[in-house]
Amino acid sequence: MGKQVLVIEDEPNIIEAISFLLMRDGWTVATHSNGRDAVDIVRARRPDLLILDVMLPGKSGYEILSELRADAALAELPVLMLTARGQAKDREMAERIGASRFMTKPFSNAEMLDALHQLVPGA
């Protein structure tokens, strides 16, 4: 049984691509596609790693991340942020709030897997 990853993303095709990749890499993958109750889902599932999109319906990825970091139990959770807006200020924003890693869409599959392994050693 591999480590658990939670993907919060609203584009169905991107969810499908990431799920395919990670399952083949041995992860257990759960997905969720809106921002409103994302924080509750994270608390309930307690994943080993979170992949979080920025533009989500209901609540933005930045807001979700801020709420997670405010919660002591989740402050150390590794979070990989994905965004389709590749401007420098988006990256700064993500780092300030406490993203563990930041990637711009479109990404290379190999890079994504490397990043996950760095974030969760031994996975």
């Binding site: 691509a17 479109p106 990404f107 599959n109």
Partner: peptide, 24 residues
């Protein structure tokens, strides 16, 4: 600008990810 970037990059993400899957 931000929007245009988003609208173009989102479909490209799927295209790149799946074309790499098909290749690899």
């Amino acid at each position: 600008l931000s929007q245009i970037s988003h609208e173009l990059r989102t479909p490209m993400t799927s295209i790149r990810a799946f074309s790499e899957i098909l290749r690899d």
